[in-house]
Design a protein around this nucleic acid. Structure first.
Length: 505
RNA sequence: UCUUCCUUAGCUCAGUUGGUUAGAGCACCUGACUGUUAAUCAGGGUGUCCUAGGUUCAAGUCCUAGAGGAAGAGCCA
């Protein structure tokens, strides 16, 4: 058996392959079967002159997603995706596929999510899953080459470490247990044993939020390093993101093309240093008090708004022109083509109108931002709009950060945390910082957050026995995938999304 | 939890001020065509108009409630 991606090594030879029929075009005496095997796509030509009547009839009877075994000759053809096609000599059906529900045309979101188990077979999903796989591979490569030890943190946890409202409760031998929201505290313990570690596991949050950036179950990478301060932490984050982006850029060119992803931003990321803003600076940028490249957020967003409105108008004009063309009478193929263009433009207009409505709201909420609070989704969008690479925001007011975040000795109201905001409107992909090593301050914080002290005795032990400065961060895998693929919604980044209101399939 | 929008054929959608027999494209089937790239061309039938009430001579269309979905907000160390 030869996989489609390996056809190029078999030019002129007769080989065997197997896969699924993803599309078919037929003529008299000719069947063009587009075969998919997970490694790639190849057109297979069944010519009635070259095969028996029975085989030709079998080929003709295949439908979308019929699985088949094929023997044929690999022939170079520059018109084909991948550059090769197969001239079929033998064909047999492995499994039939009567009326596959997902056609090669357009579908709505609800339908596709309901059919997720079949949707995964489509080309776009194939590309996303390949990229997800590469990102995971690349993350592991990076940390392994940097001498980090991969560790698995527990998924059942016995305490409500982060506040009970967003925890999934389960029954653990008649006692309540919660699904993990973070492996970090365990990672800290392991870092004291191994030096540098990273966890890579599932995370569960029972937030009742339905947005394009939230999942109830997602995967997180959490490195933790002994003897690191927040500066070193930020250096590592930048190095890490640059490594993964460059690796994906290098190895997922075909997949990015399927998605229509403009990859020029990846070159910027390799070439530029990530801006590092203190929280105070970030607020000044947000409010338009500090310019970036000679522009304020207000100027940039008002410019965006004008552009958005202009695009809406030009789209509307284009629709009218195309509708006139159809009304004047054109052939069917041309009509379909024009109609599809019109539908696409209409969808674009809907999105743009939402954007046009949102921009003034974003600006207002940026103007009204209260120093000392956390950034909302729109604030992140406004800040990152000013840059073409990820932005790091550090030195946060300690009140809005987690109890374990290290306080700044020289500025007692600040904590040494860092958030990384991805550009292109994707917002927070990394949250991290230096950890508090002072046991008394930690106890004070645990009380302040009204957390159960007895749940943290083991964690406090880490400060009792040879405590050292240490830092770490967490990266949400799905948000990284969404950003690198430039997806509208996070639900496409994971094979079977678990979100508020969605447990099936 | 709040705001706005949506629910019509297997899928994507159109359906005018309420009006008599509810439409198109795709998918599917049949036929034509020996190089198609979402092939093309001709023909073929398919409806719990989300559910329950209401207004009306008449409801896919208007009103009320509910269910499901989408976008945004809140929430998201």
């Amino acid at each position: 058996m030869v996989q489609i991606k390996d056809f190029k090594g078999f030019e002129g030879q007769v080989i065997q392959t197997q896969g699924w029929v993803t599309n078919k075009r037929s003529g008299k005496g000719l069947e063009f079967i587009v075969l998919r095997d997970g490694s790639g796509y190849a057109q297979c030509i069944v010519n009635a002159n070259d095969v028996s009547e029975a085989i030709f009839a079998t080929a003709k009877s295949t439908t979308q997603e019929t699985s088949v075994k094929i023997a044929g000759k690999v022939v170079k053809d520059d018109r084909q995706e991948g550059g090769f096609e197969l001239h079929v000599s033998q064909l047999s059906i492995i499994g039939t596929s009567p009326s596959f529900p997902i056609s090669n045309k357009e579908h709505g979101v609800e339908f596709l999510v309901d059919k997720r188990h079949l949707w995964l077979r489509s080309k776009r999903q194939w590309a996303i899953m390949k990229i997800r796989n590469r990102i995971i591979f690349s993350i592991n490569n990076f940390f392994q080459k940097e001498d980090f030890v991969q560790m698995d943190a527990p998924i059942f946890t016995g305490n409500a470490a982060e506040g009970t409202s967003t925890l999934f409760e389960t029954d653990f031998y008649d006692r309540p247990a919660y699904l993990s929201q973070s492996g970090q505290l365990y990672g800290e313990a392991m870092a004291m044993a191994m030096g540098k570690i990273y966890t890579f596991g599932p995370t569960f949050r029972a937030e009742k939020s339905k947005t394009r950036r939230h999942l109830s179950e997602f995967w997180m990478i959490e490195p933790e390093m002994a003897f690191f301060d927040n500066e070193m932490n930020m250096d590592l984050i930048e190095q890490f993101i640059k490594y993964v982006v460059a690796d994906v850029h290098e190895n997922c060119k075909a997949e990015m093309e399927v998605l229509g992803r403009d990859t020029s931003i990846f070159d910027n990321i390799a070439a530029q240093e990530f801006p590092r803003l203190s929280y105070a600076e970030a607020v000044a940028v947000l409010k338009g008090e500090q310019k970036v490249d000679g522009k304020t957020t207000i100027e940039t967003l008002e410019n965006d708004l004008a552009e958005t409105i202009a695009t809406i108008e030009s789209n509307k004009a284009e629709i009218i022109a195309k509708e006139k063309e159809i009304a004047a009478g054109v052939k069917k193929g041309k009509r379909n083509y024009l109609q599809n263009k019109i539908d696409g433009l209409k969808n674009q207009i809907t999105d743009l109108e939402v954007k046009a409505k949102n921009i003034p709201k974003w600006l207002k909420s940026a103007q009204d931002f209260k120093f000392g609070s956390d950034f909302g989704g729109s604030d992140e969008t406004v800040i990152t709009r000013m840059y073409t690479v990820p932005v790091m925001v550090y030195n946060w007011p300690h009140e809005i950060k987690a109890f374990y975040m290290k306080r700044d000795a020289s500025a007692p109201d600040l904590a040494k945390g860092v958030d990384v905001l991805a550009p292109e409107g994707y917002g927070e992909i990394v949250g991290g910082g230096e950890r508090e090593t002072n046991e008394a301050l930690l106890i004070e914080k645990i009380n302040e957050h009204k957390l159960p002290m007895d749940a943290f005795d083991w964690y406090l032990d880490l400060r009792k026995y040879g405590s050292v400065p240490h830092a770490g961060f967490g990266l949400g895998l799905e948000r990284m995938v969404a950003w690198l693929c430039k997806l509208q919604h996070i639900r496409e980044t994971i094979p079977f999304p678990r979100m508020y209101g969605r447990l099936k399939p």
